[in-house]
Every structure is written in structure tokens, then in C-alpha cells.
Design a protein around this nucleic acid. Structure first.
Length: 676
RNA sequence: GCGCCCGUAGCUCAAUCGGUUAGAGCAGCAGACUCAUAAUCUGUUGGUUCCAGGUUCGAGUCCUGGCGGGCGUACCA
């Protein structure tokens, strides 16, 4: 087979968070594919970078009180370390916030302008005056405006009942950034008229094997059956990103510059390694393979090919799309401890385990992948330790001083049959059907173990006259083992390395699975892989749960305090003047003529009662209140009001209106007790 | 709401174009073995292919409806 030139990317992880087990599905799937291609003797590079722009990064940096650059630099170091810990090897790991990316964005932009695809139009959005920024839909919450719905605390684009609307229509909208009420504002945005590329995209997505069939169908049914909408690719300042050269004050939306980051990262690599950039991105002979999750299908199968086409770069040969990770059959959950960071995993478990487990589960389809932790341990122990490594473990020590036989013995055709199986295993790898590849490899391991069983080397060992036979049997077993190590090398690079050391012959090429070793020395056997212990998995889950706990705590904003600054200092005697008492609401009734008031009758225990008018009508129904405990100011001078005399106050927090939160004592307090 | 995908053994998955008696691995059960990290080998139990219809000589596969699950629904990372 002639040497292919293949450029492979995985989606750029966002610089807003750490790498977790969900991300790793993709980076491992990709790493395995790249290692496979290299093992087959192809020229293959693995390119990635951090995705660093956008509102979320800006907000996060602001909250942390530091620059965006500082934030993304730190996160990039974490990402790089996490990937390295899982033996994921990139030719280059860049950043979308790089000079190379800025230049390339300019280049793309120029071509898009030249092709007359860019138009300007006003967009009306909610604007947070306090934060000084426009609000994406997810940064606004409010009440669903749909008639008869009225769900409160809903996102800016749709509610939990499935109604969709514009954030500008939300009732009582609140910015999640500042808690303030946003106002409606317009600003000019730049759009790419994708519809002009419709015929090209139709042809590209529906033919040529660039996409999995289900994905092609999805695109046809969802987007390509009608005119494509214009794509809004600009954001007004403030925005962390690249300013658009011919539109000052506007920045490219993060999804514009993120995929260009694939190219920019390649360019960095080319410059460092003295490679010809055009060979990689402007040469039809080069294959481009993108690995992505199904969540970002749209960007990579419509916008991206469109942009590449217009800017004159290679189109993707294939976009490989995978599903999401679930753990124990459910979404990753912080409270369950199944939201496991890469770094946390590595503290407890060997990366080879996860590489193998994911490989055993990955298919070419878009299906979600479940990490069942019990199965994880069982599969690793049974397949890798029990079957594969066990072959070396039960044969190497018998030939430690002897080495492998000078001539490969008769093994009944086992090695040759397994060598022949190699092409089917390779085809499965090529097709991203790692599940099938692992299945086939384990079937070979089963046959090899049966061979050991039939030839009983432990019995041959006891008879000095059989030692030549013993050497032959072990030579067969070790060669079968090595053959498996070659087939598994893309998944388990460490095992391949250890096998190379054991038999004094490094594993560097797939072809090494096709001919046995003869006469090699055999090093002293060392355990190649430990069994997974339940306790280790449990410890990892526990730690993940604990890590998540602080993150689950609400990050308290300073808005409330800012709205009402601390009062002047008082003495304890001042405080003692206020007699706060636990009271039970005996009755509660609305005051019909009053806008805000509910009339409460409070029992302080015994026969002591107070009538209090409380301004909580907007927040509470009278029937919610009857029977509950509240805290009241019991020695407040009575005040004559329009509707009667109020003999105290109930204490509550909140800004008023619907924002009223009555205080209650914890369980055990009884009416009449004073609050000290 | 609208749309897409999925539903096969206890678990994870196969099953070519619609084609014989729906197959593997793990788990379970019964033996064997003792070289090996309680590993391995042999045998074996286990199915209303989610349900109800339909098309067909023939349906896990195609069509319709239902139930259950997942996901998407464009300025969401």
C-alpha cells in the first residue's frame, strides 16, 4: 500500500474547564486511529489546540479577577498534562488565541468578503447594562411569555414546557451575570450567507463518503431541505476574541475562529518542523480527518466545509462523529461522583485501562457510549490481565535463560492464521470499528491460551528430556503474545513497549505481526499490568464527588451587598434592644384593598398574640403561611395603618416585590423563644 | 411542541441485500487444570428480538401505530 499523508484533528477543548472522561472518548478514539495509521507506515499527524475565545471565557476571567490570557494559559497547561497522562500524543497542541490563527482568520475573511458572502444586519438582543455586555440566550432567565405557561426562571430561548421565544419577549428577564434587569438594544452584526453555498453543501454532504450515513440524513432532513439561514459570525465589544479588521468594535464569534484553529495549529507545526504548509492544507493528496462529538455536527459539516471551500483549502476527507459518554447508564453527575476529571482518574487508575475499555466500546456509529464501572473492571481484568498479559506471564519464565527457538516451531498454523486475521483487524481500525477489532484480537488470545493448555509447558518443565520441546512451546506462546501486542499497539502503546523490552525487539510496524521472532533472548518477566481493584474505582468516584462539592456551592455574587451596603457599627446593647421572637402564624388573610399586604395573626405562645401587616403579598399565598414559624420583632412600637394597627414585623430578606424570603428557625424552636 | 436516533440473553454488543435453527464476550452453572496476577481450559443454562398490526414464500431487518429511552431544535460551550 502506498504511503498516505493524513492530517487528523480532534475538536478543540474549551479553555473554560478541565478535561474529563467524556472528553477523553474523543481524544482517545482519535489517538488510537492516529497511532494505527502510523503503525501501518503512513505519514499521519495529530493536530489539536485549545479553544479560547468567547463570552464564557471573558466572564470567567472577570470573576477570577485576572486577564483572559492568564486564564487560558493556565488551562492549556492542565489540558496538555492531562492528555500526556493518557498517552495522547499530538504533533502540535496550539491555541486559537495565537498569531497564526489571527492571520488565518484574516485570510478566510478576505476570501469570504471577496466572494461577496458577508452582509450586515441589526440584531436585537438583551443587554446587561451593569456588566456592559450583550447577553446570549443562556445568560438570561425569566418567565415564559407563552400564554398560559408562566413557568418562571427559564432560559432566554425556550422553557421547560417546550415553548420557544425570543429573549426579548421574556417576562421579568434577569441577567445571570449581574442579576440586573437587561434592556433591549440593537447592534449591527455580520452574517455569512450560507445559502449561496447550498448546492455545494448538498453535494458534499450527500456524496463521497465524507459523513456517516445517519449524519448525512440528519443534515438533509434538518437543514438542507430548505434555504440555509445566514450565519451570524460577529459579536459586538466587549468580547474576548479577534477584532474584525474591516468592522471595528466587532469581533469574530468563537465558532468562526475555532475551526480555523485546526489550520493555525498545523501551521505552527510546519514552521517548527520545516514542513511545507501547502502540502498539508492545499493538496488534494492529503487526507483531512476531523473527529468530533455529535453536539458540534452542524458547525463541522455545513459552515466549516463552506468556509474551506471559499478560502481554497482542502475539504475534509471525512468527519467522524461519535456520541456522548454516560457513566453507569446515566449522564455524568457531579453529585454521583461520575463526573470524573482526567487528572482524578490518573491518580487512581492506569490510563491503559480506559484506552482499552473505550476501544472495546467504540463503533463507527454515532451511538452514545456507556462506561459501566463494574464492567470496566471486569473487562480489563478478564481481557487484558487474564487473557493477553497472562500469555507472557505463563510462558516467559520457562525460557528466561534459553531465549526463543532458532527456528519457529510447528504451531499447527496458529501464528499464520492470526497473521491473516491482521487485515480484518486493520480494516476494523481503519473504519473506526474498534469494538470489532478488540473482539477479533481477544478471540486470538483465547486460541493462544488454549494452545498453552493443550501443550502443558509446566509438565514439560519437569522432564529434562523435554526441554527443547518446552522452548518450542514457549516460543510459540511468546510469539502469539507479541502478535497481539502489535495488534493492540494503537490502543496500548505501553504494552507494546514492554513487549519490545521483554523480547528485545521494539514494536514499530504492523508488519511485525506477520512474521515470528526466532532466537531472541527473553528478559526476566515483570508484571505488565495490574488488575483493577474495585476499591480504586470507588476511591476515584469518592474523590470526584468531593471535588464537585465546592463547585456545587453557589458562587455568591456581591450584588446584594452592593445594593445595600453594611450599616453603621452597633454595640451588643444596641442589638439587645431589639426583641426578636419565634412566632407561629395562626391565621393569614389578604388585605383586598392593599397592594402588598397580608394580615397576619402571630402566636408568641400561651395567649400572647400580635397582629402584623406584612408586605409580602406578591411572594406568598396566605394559605402557605398558616401554621409555619416566623421570626418577628416583638417589641416594636405599634403603628397605625390604613387597615388597622400593626403590632410588629416579621423579618425577611430579599429586595421586595416577589423577592421576599421569610426567615424561619430550624427544627425545634417553639413560639415565644427569644432570638439572641 | 417539532424532528432525529435507539430498543436483540442478567450486562455489553453481533447478525451481509429481507433468507436455514437469532450469535459472541462477560456474568451464572457443572467439570478439568495448577504454569500463570483467584489467572486458564472444556462443557453448559439462558431469547415472545419492547408491544400491536401490516407487506412478503420468508421480517430482528421494510411499513403504520403505540410504549420506553437518548439527543437535537441555528447568535449553546
Amino acid at each position: 500500500m502506498s504511503e498516505r499523508r493524513i492530517l487528523v484533528t480532534a475538536a478543540l477543548p474549551y479553555a473554560n474547564g478541565h478535561i474529563h472522561l467524556g472528553h477523553l472518548v474523543e481524544y482517545l478514539q482519535t489517538d488510537i486511529w492516529v497511532r494505527f495509521q502510523k503503525l501501518r507506515g503512513h505519514r499521519c499527524i495529530y493536530i489539536c489546540a485549545d479553544d479560547t475565545h468567547g463570552t464564557a471565557i471573558m466572564i470567567r476571567a472577570r470573576d477570577d479577577g485576572r486577564s483572559e490570557e492568564e486564564l487560558i494559559a493556565e488551562m492549556q497547561q492542565h489540558h496538555i498534562a492531562d492528555f500526556a497522562g493518557f498517552d495522547i500524543e499530538f504533533e502540535n497542541y496550539g491555541s486559537t488565541n495565537s498569531p497564526a490563527n489571527r492571520e488565518l482568520c484574516h485570510e478566510f475573511w478576505q476570501q469570504l468578503r471577496a466572494a461577496d458572502l458577508v452582509v450586515e444586519r441589526d440584531v436585537t438582543q438583551l443587554f446587561d447594562v451593569e456588566a456592559g455586555t450583550f447577553l446570549a440566550d443562556r445568560f438570561v432567565r425569566g418567565t415564559c411569555p407563552h400564554p398560559g405557561c408562566g413557568l418562571t426562571d427559564q432560559y432566554g430561548d425556550s422553557c421547560d414546557n417546550g415553548h420557544t421565544y425570543s429573549p426579548a419577549d421574556l417576562i421579568d428577564p434577569v441577567s445571570t451575570l449581574s442579576g440586573s434587569k437587561p434592556e433591549v438594544r440593537s447592534a449591527p452584526h455580520l452574517f455569512i450567507q450560507l445559502e449561496q453555498l447550498h448546492p455545494f453543501l448538498e453535494a458534499w454532504t450527500q456524496s463521497g463518503d465524507h459523513l456517516q450515513r445517519e449524519v448525512a440524513n440528519y443534515l438533509k432532513g434538518h437543514f438542507l431541505h430548505e434555504p440555509l439561514r445566514d450565519w451570524d459570525i460577529s459579536r459586538p465589544a466587549p468580547y474576548f476574541g479577534f477584532e474584525i479588521p474591516d468592522s471595528p468594535g466587532n469581533y469574530w464569534y468563537v465558532w468562526f475562529d475555532a475551526p480555523i484553529g485546526y489550520i493555525a495549529s498545523t501551521r505552527e507545526w510546519c514552521e517548527r518542523e520545516g514542513e511545507n504548509f501547502d502540502e498539508w492544507w492545499r493538496n488534494e493528496a492529503t487526507e483531512i480527518h476531523h473527529f468530533i462529538g455529535k453536539d458540534i455536527t452542524y458547525f463541522h459539516t455545513l459552515f466549516w466545509p463552506g468556509m474551506l471551500k471559499v478560502a481554497g483549502f482542502n475539504l475534509p476527507t471525512k468527519v467522524h462523529i461519535h456520541g456522548f459518554l454516560t457513566v453507569n447508564g446515566a449522564k455524568m453527575s457531579k453529585t454521583k461522583g461520575t463526573f470524573v476529571r482526567a487528572a482524578t482518574y490518573l491518580e487512581h487508575l492506569d490510563p491503559s485501562y480506559l484506552r482499552y475499555y473505550y476501544a472495546a466500546k467504540l463503533t463507527p456509529r454515532v451511538d452514545d457510549l456507556d462506561l459501566n464501572l463494574e464492567e470496566f473492571a471486569a473487562k480489563v481484568n478478564s481481557d487484558l490481565v487474564g487473557k493477553v498479559v497472562n500469555l507472557a506471564s505463563r510462558s516467559a519464565k520457562f525460557v528466561a535463560g534459553l531465549g526463543l527457538s532458532q527456528v519457529y516451531p510447528d504451531d499447527g498454523g496458529l501464528f499464520a492464521a492470526a497473521a491473516q486475521e491482521g487485515e480484518q483487524i486493520a480494516a476494523a481500525y481503519e473504519n473506526c470499528d474498534y469494538n470489532q477489532a478488540m473482539r477479533r484480537i481477544m478471540a486470538l488470545a483465547d486460541r493462544a491460551n488454549a494452545y498453552v493448555e493443550q501443550h502443558e509447558p509446566w509438565k514439560l518443565k519437569k522432564d529434562p528430556e523435554q526441554h527443547a520441546r518446552l522452548q518450542d512451546v514457549c516460543s510459540v506462546v511468546l510469539n502469539l503474545f507479541r502478535q497481539l501486542a502489535v495488534y493492540l499497539a494503537p490502543v496500548l502503546p505501553r504494552l507494546a513497549e514492554q513487549t519490545g523490552e521483554l523480547l528485545g525487539a521494539p514494536i514499530e510496524h504492523w508488519a511485525e505481526s506477520q512474521s515470528p521472532l526466532c532466537g531472541n533472548e527473553v528478559a526476566k518477566f515483570k508484571h505488565m499490568m495490574q488488575r483493577v481493584e474495585k476499591e480504586q474505582v470507588q476511591a476515584m468516584i469518592e474523590e470526584s464527588r468531593e471535588e464537585a462539592a465546592p463547585a456545587m456551592a453557589p458562587s455568591d455574587s456581591g450584588d446584594a451587598l452592593a445594593a445595600e451596603p453594611l450599616a453603621e457599627e452597633i454595640t451588643i446593647d444596641d442589638f439587645a434592644k431589639v426583641d426578636l421572637r419565634v412566632a407561629r402564624v395562626k391565621s393569614a388573610e389578604e388585605v383586598p384593598e392593599a397592594r402588598k399586604l397580608i394580615k397576619l395573626c402571630l402566636s408568641l405562645g400561651g395567649t400572647e398574640e400580635r397582629t402584623v401587616f406584612a408586605g409580602i403579598k406578591a411572594a406568598y399565598q396566605p394559605e402557605q403561611l398558616v401554621g409555619r414559624l416566623v421570626i418577628c420583632v416583638a417589641n416594636l412600637a405599634p403603628r397605625k395603618m390604613k387597615f388597622g394597627v400593626s403590632e410588629g414585623m416579621v423579618v425577611a430578606a430579599g429586595g421586595g416585590g416577589k423577592e421576599v424570603y421569610l426567615l424561619s428557625p430550624d427544627e425545634g424552636a417553639v413560639p415565644g423563644e427569644r432570638v439572641h
